[in-house]
């Protein structure tokens, strides 16, 4: 068997045609990492597919809680599918669906600094048991947490943040799931892909293996399980 046919076989295993196949396996209580920051890099078709799937009690990790765009993470709050959310900036005025569920007590919020979110995801992806960070030490956000003084500075122990699924978006994938992102749309998408047991990517464009130069791959396909080609929710 040539290397060419080998890569084609792997690619067939990752490509999915239908959004519902892309998110298959997400069930009640799943931990879902949702990419996107400030309205860019948002896997809107995958979020829409989770809304149609109807799983509830989800634990969602996300930077924002909705920016008022069609099919952003706000949709999952509107549908009442989220039980707990781990976020850094849930207060956007357009995050009305999150706000309603939060005010009624249906959604529990864990607020964490943005750099800590990125690093907790990275730690999970890198197989680490956590890390000590000075960020947030001595503030309300880290009360009752294990601390240690390192180089004279108080640090807080942060655990890894692992997901059952990551829903991410990239500009381009090859058949192996090697990805390239576009400007600020990169964001948390690569670390979320690393941190999940199953990573699903929504891409605008699929290219043959070899079309992306190995040196130009932002995230290697080893972190990607399913590829859905879609230009987004209209």
């Amino acid at each position: 068997m040539t290397q060419r046919t080998e890569s084609a076989r792997v690619a067939l295993n990752k490509l999915v045609q239908d959004p519902s196949d892309a998110v298959a396996g997400i069930r009640d209580g799943s931990v879902v990492l949702v990419g996107g920051w400030g309205g860019v890099g948002v896997p809107d078709v995958l979020i829409d597919a989770v809304a149609r799937l109807g799983a509830s009690g989800l634990v969602v990790a996300t930077n924002n809680c909705g920016m008022g765009r069609p099919a952003d993470v706000g949709l999952l709050f509107r549908n009442g599918q989220v039980g707990r959310v781990i976020a850094t900036y849930p207060v956007h005025p357009a995050a009305t669906d999150f706000l309603a569920r939060f005010e009624s007590g249906e959604v529990e919020l864990e607020l964490i600094p943005q750099g800590t979110l990125a690093e907790r995801l990275r730690a999970a992806g890198a197989g680490l048991g956590g890390f000590f960070t000075p960020t947030g030490a001595g503030t309300l956000l880290t009360e009752r947490r294990e601390t240690r003084v390192i180089d004279g500075l108080e640090h807080v122990l942060e655990p890894p943040l692992r997901g059952d699924f990551a829903l991410i978006r990239a500009e381009r994938s090859d058949e192996l799931g090697n990805l390239r992102f576009r400007y600020a749309a990169r964001g948390l998408n690569p670390v979320m892909a690393m941190a999940a047991r199953t990573t699903v990517v929504q891409v605008d464009e699929l290219v043959p293996a070899g079309r992306i130069h190995p040196d130009d791959v932002h995230l290697p396909g080893i972190f990607v399980d399913r590829i859905l080609v879609s230009g987004g929710v209209p």
């Binding site: 850094t88 849930p90 207060v91 607020l111 600094p113 750099g115 960020t135 947030g136 503030t139 956000l141």
Partner: peptide, 15 residues
């Protein structure tokens, strides 16, 4: 405030 956003403020202020 019952609800807040922290974003990158703590990382930046400290670093």
């Amino acid at each position: 405030a019952r609800l807040s956003g922290v974003g990158g403020a703590m990382d930046l202020a400290l670093g």
